[in-house]
Design a binder for these strands. Structure first.
Length: 215
DNA sequence: CTCCCGATAT
DNA sequence: ATATCAGGAG
């Protein structure tokens, strides 16, 4: 298992490799970010941006998503995958936003998870990126990188990974670290064929050393 | 744990 | 052909 001082070194390396890591889901306001993040489940952000480019022209407010039929909304997001669940959730979410929240998104993580289709990860993305509240959302990249490095256990669930990351990372660095770990996982420590030979963290990486031995 | 699901990379 | 992609609900 990784030591805390080794993790602090990882944080430094993440910053050096991806100093300008940021949210790559294109959005103009908190509501658009929520929709984009909900759509991003099991889809690449490039693909999400391709879909939202047109979607956000047609749908600007929660009311706009309610006006059309469920079938029409499904068609507008079909190419993204998991489109039936996502369309149903977006609709229910918008109705709830209008009737219970006066159309205004709450700036609270636990309040956001009450919306259909919004789990802990999505809520963390919204509060950190849209409202400036420190959060460390654990997505597929953050989880994979954490487990490969050995900063948590393989069997830990995403909540346990998040707790460990928050405990070992200064609060003011949570949001930055989240973005840097995504970039690190997406462009360097990739799911298929990670670039271990050129990795500055190879010396302390459990999975990396194992992979190098196997070759 | 399974299901939802199309697009893309390997 | 198969794995993976900014997950969440039942």
């Amino acid at each position: 298992m990784l030591r805390k001082t080794e993790w602090q070194h990882c944080l430094q390396v993440f910053e050096e490799m991806f100093p300008d890591a940021h949210c790559e889901l294109v959005h103009q306001n908190p509501f658009e970010l929520l929709i984009a993040t909900l759509l991003s489940a099991q889809a690449t952000d490039v693909h999400v941006n391709k879909v939202t480019a047109e979607l956000f022209q047609k749908y600007r407010t929660p009311e706009d998503y309610i006006r059309v039929s469920l079938e029409e909304l499904e068609n507008d997001i079909r190419s993204i995958g998991l489109y039936r669940n996502k369309a149903k959730n977006i609709r229910a979410l918008c109705e709830m936003l209008i009737t219970e929240y006066n159309g205004i998104l709450p700036e609270d993580r636990d309040e956001l998870t009450k919306f259909p289709g919004v789990g802990r990860k999505t809520a963390n993305v919204v509060v950190s990126n849209a409202f400036g509240i420190p959060a460390l959302a654990v997505d597929t990249h953050v989880e994979r990188v954490s487990k490969r490095l050995g900063m948590c256990r393989w069997k830990d669930n995403v909540t346990q990974v998040e707790e460990k990351l928050m405990r070992w990372t200064p609060r003011e660095e949570w949001t930055n670290t989240h973005h840097r770990m995504i970039f690190f996982g997406r462009y360097h420590c990739k799911a298929q064929n990670p670039n271990c030979p050129e990795c500055p963290l190879l010396d302390l990486c459990r999975e990396g050393k194992k992979r190098m031995r196997a070759k």
